[in-house]
Design a protein around this nucleic acid. Structure first.
Lengths: 351, 351
DNA sequence: AGCCGATCTGGGAGCGCTCCCAGGTGTGGC
DNA sequence: GCCACACCTGGGAGCGCTCCCAGATCGGCT
């Protein structure tokens, strides 16, 4: 590595003094109290005073000291978004990326700043807990899909408002949850395949240590049984990755040469499955129909053929979570609720 | 959407009082000052007092109020990571995801909390500036690759320590920058192709409103000229996406049926190029050799064939940025520096 | 004229912490 | 025996803000 010294444009020396509210008040010729009221547009400030204060603030380049403010108001204006998930998963998972993005937007819309927290190792757990406890944030949106994850239970003991995205590990009641109707979505997908005359409908399930994939698998199974079809030996578990989906598809094809449809628990795995099917010479949807889950905007419609997929909108989920959290901030005794968001089927050429 | 009420496990009623340092001190039988010293392991605290205070803190479940602390210390322990980029780009770009991840890790390693900020619209700009000014964070790592982006200039006026990742729009001096050797990387790639006997070496360049792609294109051109080869008409610009890469490859093939190599400015675009080449019946690397840029860990080695790619490690970049920022935090008058990180060539089967 | 309420203002207190300073205790050297 | 110097402790001040309360002004009512 080499290093080159830049120009001599030094940082503004001295003058490290940021103006305080007192300075603004003095400049505007009013008291600190009046200045505060004007800037927070409280009631009972004369139009003249408000005008003078705002002008002073502008001229002095004033911005309030958040630490001082939150020391007295006991709120910070920041909300944590906690993603508890092994590192590798996150890099690959378009759903998580969408969640981060949506979190930022939705929180910005209600005037809150997002503080993103990744938490996947043991040390992370205690650091995360310490951070949330430290009063850095007013509340948290938590995504912790893994059943064995100790985080949700640890967080439950904290005294800050929390809303979970998806079922929280090992906790069924007493917490706020916003989840999608995973089982219902799987049902939609399989019913669609049955209605199209498919009879050998396999599934590539997601990791069975998470609620969502468990529910999707259950939905597939129940719907087959309801239609008088036999699910035996037609399920294969994979890990939500492209290559995992491809391998699972190989295994299914090897076991069942006659399968005519497959329900895949995520778009990413479906991409892998598509590749395997293509390599095996199966035409889609003529020989094998494919329906997946997620309906990721950049993935599902871009495939060849475009994927029929169960549509769930992460933004909608996050929106609902933020809404719930805002209510919780207002009323800490809000009764815990389980919101279940509906999903729909986006039908495309793959089925 | 339907909503089901959860169990009656209400939140801990009343008792909203978090213990303060004063409480801990009283409980331990020492003064507030001593308690503070013990918890911050200052010098001059007796072992006995330290022990008592720590026990008290543990028993009471004490965690310090960060707002109060940062009000007096004038530092928050948080660092902003600012990503200034159109929304669509971020969802797709594995490099940005890696940067977020690395930022979180590297900052955690030095005991700092990452506050992630997306900034791509006009409103975002003023919100971002306001946030950074508000004293929420001690400093910022800023990624703003686009030449026309007004953010860097705006941030330059702020009085908080900032380190840029990659060249900042329109600013060449007076700021701290950690960048990769983009031109040198392109040179490595092209020299490798020339050494392998390739003579018609095309390139798929990235968006020419950003520094990195500009430098990569320049490196390609210069190296060709140095080797006595003609770059004319052999460059095609694309937008860093898979489909963009595929289209660019089509255009190049249409213009030059005889091209025997292509240097692609990103892995993602290379994936698209690979598809096009495959569809056109070109064998890789026999007919056309492919070298790309980024060497993304989940992308480059997983392709068929695995991609030869210029290796740059986002974690290394972020590490250097964090290091620089920490120095800057110590000494606000640190002379601005431009760090240029070396890159290397990971040779695989595609060339 | 007197009074009441609505509107506006300024001063004081205090959020929970860190830091400075004055003071108290013990140990060693002259 | 006394001073110098470590070590340790507690109280006070103050960071920059919001909120409460007392007071001032003014119009409109009895």
């Amino acid at each position: 590595m080499w290093v080159s010294e830049g120009g001599a444009v030094g940082p503004r020396a001295g003058d490290d003094e940021r103006p305080t509210l007192e300075d603004v008040a003095a400049f505007a010729g009013v008291s600190r109290s009046t200045a505060s009221r004007a800037l927070n547009d409280d009631a009972y400030v004369s139009a003249a005073a408000r005008e003078k204060v705002h002008a002073a603030a502008r001229d002095l380049g004033y911005s309030p000291n958040q630490a001082a403010r939150s020391l007295v108001t006991r709120r910070t204006g920041a909300i944590a978004v906690v993603l508890s998930e092994p590192e590798a998963r996150l890099l690959d998972d378009p759903y998580r990326t969408a969640v981060m993005r949506a979190g930022y937007r939705e929180l910005a819309d209600v005037g809150r700043q997002m503080v993103l927290i990744f938490s996947d190792t043991r040390e992370d757990l205690s650091r995360t807990v310490r951070f949330l406890e430290g009063g850095h944030v007013d509340g948290a949106l938590v995504f912790a899909p893994h059943r064995a994850d100790p985080l949700p239970k640890a967080l439950r003991l904290l005294r800050i408002p929390i809303v979970f995205g998806g079922q929280a590990a090992g906790i069924r009641r007493g917490v706020h949850v916003v989840d999608f109707d995973n089982e219902g979505g799987a049902r939609l997908a399989v019913e669609h395949l049955v209605a199209a005359g498919r009879r050998r409908i396999a599934t590539i399930a997601g990791p069975q240590d998470q609620s969502a994939p468990i529910d999707r698998l259950a939905g597939w199974r129940k719907t087959l049984l309801d239609a008088g079809l036999d699910p035996a030996d037609l399920a294969e578990e994979a890990d939500f990755t492209l290559s995992g989906g491809a391998n699972a598809m190989s295994n299914l094809l090897a076991r069942h040469k006659d399968l005519d449809a497959v329900f895949v628990a995520s778009d990413m795995m479906a991409v892998g499955a598509l590749r395997t099917l293509d390599a095996a010479g199966r035409r889609i949807p003529d020989d094998v129909a494919v329906v997946s889950f997620d309906d990721n905007a950049t993935l599902a419609p871009a495939m060849d053929p475009p994927l029929t997929s169960v549509h769930q909108d992460p933004r909608e989920q996050v929106h609902c979570m933020v809404e719930t959290l805002m209510q919780l901030l207002e009323d800490h005794n809000l009764k815990p609720r389980q919101h279940v968001l509906p999903v729909s089927l986006a039908v495309r050429a793959s089925s």
